[in-house]
Design a protein around this nucleic acid. Structure first.
Lengths: 145, 145
DNA sequence: ATCTAATGATTAGATATCAAACGCTTTCAT
DNA sequence: ATGAAAGCGTTTGATATCTAATCATTAGAT
C-alpha cells in the first residue's frame, strides 16, 4: 500500500522550505525576499502581477513584501512614465549587496539538497513534479486516464 | 542548467495542496481537518503533541483546529483520568460521517493525482522525496557527500 | 513530604497569506 | 470625445500559522 502521494509531497515541501528559509534568514533575508530579488534580476520583469505570478504568491501579498523591502532600503518603486499604472521596481545598491549574499546561501543550500542524487534522479524528479502539476490543473480535472 | 530543485518542489506542493484543499472543501472539510481525522482513526493516538507532530503542525495550531471542530460537533475532548494532563480526543457520530465523506474525496483526489504515473514512478518519487527530507534534516547539515 | 523539573495543553501576540473591494489609469467602442 | 470596460496596484478584513508565555499536572529528587 503506497502512501498518499499528496501528503508525502506537502510534508517534504514544508521541511525543505523551512530549512531553506532558515538558511536565507542567516544570510539576512527570507524566502519571499529571495524569490522577488532573483525574479527582478533574471527575468525581464513586466508588471507586479506577473512578478507575483512567477513566484507563486498573490498580488496583495507581494505589495506587503515590497513595502517592507522599500522601507528597508532594498528597492525603489516609481511609476512608469509610459504607463502610469505600473510600478517599476528596482534594486538599490544595498539591495544588490543582499542579493549577492542570498545567492551564495541559495547555491550552498541547493548543493546540500542535491546530495546523493544523480543527474538522472534530478531530471526524473523534475518530470514527476511537472506531471503532478498537470494532474491538478483546472482543465480536465477528473477524467480517469 | 537544471532548475533549482527546492523551488520546483515548493511550487508543486503549493498547487497540489490547494487543489486538495478545494476538493475537501467541496466535501465539507479542509486539509487540516482531514489530517486530524485520519490520524485519529488510523494511528493509535498518544497525545495532542504527537498528533500535531504526525500531521506536521504546531501544538498551538492543533488546539485552534480542535476548538472549531469541537464547537462544530465533530469531536469531543475529555481529560484522561489516568493522566489528567492529556486530552482524549474522539470523533462524534457526525464526525464519523464527515470522515467517510472526506475519505471518498481524498481517494478520488489521489487517483486523479496518480494519473499517468506507473507504480515504479510512484516508488521513485517516494524515494526521492525521502532523500530530500534527509538532506535537510538538522544532523550533518553541510558536509559535501 | 515537599520542592523542582518536566510534560501536556491552552492562550496571547505577531506574522504571513489570501480574497474582495477600491482608486487611478489606459484602452476601446461608439 | 466620451463613456464603459479592463488593467495595475493598494488597502481592508479575515484566516491560518508560528513562537513564547502560562496554567495545570505528573515525575523525580532530597
Amino acid at each position: 500500500m503506497p502512501p498518499p502521494i499528496g501528503l508525502d509531497l506537502s510534508q517534504t515541501a514544508k521541511s525543505v522550505s523551512r530549512a531553506f528559509d532558515r538558511a536565507l534568514a542567516e544570510a539576512g533575508g527570507s524566502l519571499p525576499v529571495w524569490l522577488i530579488m532573483i525574479s527582478l534580476k533574471t527575468r525581464s520583469l513586466g508588471t507586479q502581477r506577473e512578478l507575483a505570478e512567477a513566484i507563486g504568491i498573490q498580488g496583495a501579498t507581494l505589495t506587503h513584501h515590497l513595502n517592507s523591502m522599500e522601507s528597508g532600503g532594498l528597492i525603489t518603486r516609481r511609476r512608469d512614465p509610459a504607463n502610469r499604472r505600473v510600478h517599476v521596481v528596482e534594486l538599490t545598491e544595498p539591495g544588490e549587496l543582499l542579493f549577492r549574499r542570498l545567492a551564495d546561501a541559495a547555491v550552498a543550500f541547493d548543493s546540500r539538497l542535491r546530495r546523493g542524487l544523480a543527474p538522472g534522479d534530478l531530471e526524473a524528479l523534475h518530470a514527476l513534479l511537472a506531471r503532478l502539476r498537470e494532474n491538478v490543473a483546472d482543465d480536465a480535472p477528473i477524467l480517469n486516464e
